[in-house]
Every structure is written in C-alpha cells, then in structure tokens.
Amino acid sequence: MATLRQRYSYMVWMREFELACLEGVATREIHGELHTAIGQEAIGAGMAGFLRADDAMCSTHRNHLHAIAKGVDMRKMLAEIFERESGLCGGFGGHMHLMDSSLKFSATGIVGAGMPVAAGHAYASRLRGSDSVAVAVVGDGAVNTGAFHEAMNIAGVLKLPLVVVVENNEWAISVPFSAASATETIAERAQMWAAQGMRVDGNDVEAVASAFGEAVARARRGEGPTIIEAMCYRFRGHFEGDADTYRTEQEKEDRRSVDPLAITRKKVLDSQLATQAELEAEESSIAREVKKMLGEVRLDPKPSSEMALQHVFVGGE
C-alpha cells in the first residue's frame, strides 16, 4: 500500500501528465475532444497501490489518472494521446480508448458502458476461482444509465468482486447532479443492489484510499460489490474547448481554490513527511520528467496511412 507521501507524488505526476496533454490541444497535436481530470487527482492517487496485475479496471472517457493508478506505462499513454505509432494502441485507440490487456485496463468513450465489462472481469475471477477483483470507475453521469443498473444488479445477485468508484464531480457536461438524480446521493442507491455504499471526500486522498482499500479487500473476501461515491470538482470544462458557461465564474473560482494537490501537500508538510525543499525538488523533477517524455513522444512517428485497414479481424477476412 502506498503512503501519503507516495500518493502526493502520484498526484503531482497526474497533474503534470494532464498539463502535458493540454499542451497538445493548444498546438493541435491532439485532435478531437480531450477530457482531463485536473482537480480529481486525489481519487486517482487514492486508488494507487491496491490493485494487482490480475485485477481489472474499466475506466471512462476521463481515464488518464485511472490508467496511471493501475500502473499503465505513461510514456505509451502519452504517445497514444499524441496519436503516435508507439502509443499504447498504436494510434488506433486515441485518448478515450486506452487499453492495456497485460494489466487488464480498458476505457470506453460510452458513458456507463464500462460497468458491465467490469462485471465480466469480476465473473472471470469467479470462474477461475481466484480472488482477483474488478474496478469500474465512472462519473456521476453514468449512474443514470441502464448499463449501470444492469451491472450493479447482476453483481449484487451473484456477489461479484466488483468495486465501483463514482467520481461525482457534480456535473454531467451541463446538467448538475441535483437535476439528474432522483436520490440525493449515489451511495444510498447501493442498498437496492445489495451492495455497500459510501460517500467520501474526493479531495481527501487518504479518505479515498481508505474506502477503496476496504472495498477491494471486501471484494477479495467474496463479500460482494461496493459503490464508493467520491465527491470532487472538475476544474476544467467537460472537454477542452467546452465554453463551460453552465457554471458561473464565481463557482468555478471558489471550487478551484480547493485544490486536492494543495490539500495533500499541506498534509504531507504538516505531518513532517517531507520538507518544503524536498517537495519543491520533487515537483520540479517530475515536471522535467514529463516534459522529457513529451519531447520524446513528439519525435515518435505517426501511424502511416497504409495501416488504417489493419486489425478489423484477427484472421483477416
């Protein structure tokens, strides 16, 4: 299990990674919509260190931090996001569809669609008779899809080793959670699927880690599914380029002032786990590392046009 000190490092890596992605949007190296999770690092970092290679994780369109938490190679992720042949999926996936089969990590651009896939991973654990678990990370928008209900119900009735982390950033694009959910919380819905439900402060990396660790352990023991609702705030628009007029400037300013990185940094200092100087040195070292990684990625070739017809079928047609 990771320490608070290590979790802070994860958070810095995650923030720097997302900032590198933002750069690619500005320079038009990244096409299509890019969804960053700046402001949601405490959830990604809170999940780090609990999962084994044989545990699965199914993520969303806003998946970068989850992949990092699962241990997916950041260099390959960045290359995929920057549309390079050296990318995790050879440039065939793009940022919304990062997949690493060796780590059982996958992401989908369809809201809610990762839920039944995670249930399938959990069922594979049952078939194998193993204690591996499956994690689905979704946003608050996904909880109102049929896929979410179907997957939770089957996980509940079969007592599958499934951990669902809902990043409740309060907004499904422009629609606030309060206008979309019949229940005040997502956690309270858990009981209808015979699952455990808990709501945690998603800006508190230790609270997330504690809840997640408990849910994973519970799943490994064969005690069934858990829903962790982690409250957070998306610092940027739904995607890069989102005019984001549905949230007032005042709201955004107020909420961004509660930055999980700053909170965690203060905790690390207050607990005397590192000195100010040590943290500054690490922060600039990570920033340099990511910059270096981006520099390398930019030299990687783009997939060539004649490759576009590959991989439709394994055996060809």
């Binding site: 699965a56 199914c58 089969s101 059982k104 996958s106 669609a113 839920m115 039944p116 896939v117 995670a118 249930a119 399938g120 991973h121 959990a122 069922y123 594979a124 078939l127 194998r128 499956a134 049929g146 896929a147 179907e150 997957a151 119900n153 089957i154 009735v157």
Partner: peptide, 21 residues
C-alpha cells in the same frame, strides 16, 4: 442463467473475452 439484462450479458462478454474466455 442471467437476469433479463442484455447490456449486462454482452458487456460481461467483453470483460470475459479480455480475461481469455
């Protein structure tokens, strides 16, 4: 024997395939 949940059935198939089934 699954519940009447076609999305869960097909989605679980995806997860199972990723696990080598």
């Amino acid at each position: 024997d699954t519940p009447i949940s076609e999305t869960a059935i097909t989605g679980m198939g995806v997860g199972l395939a990723m696990e080598g089934y």
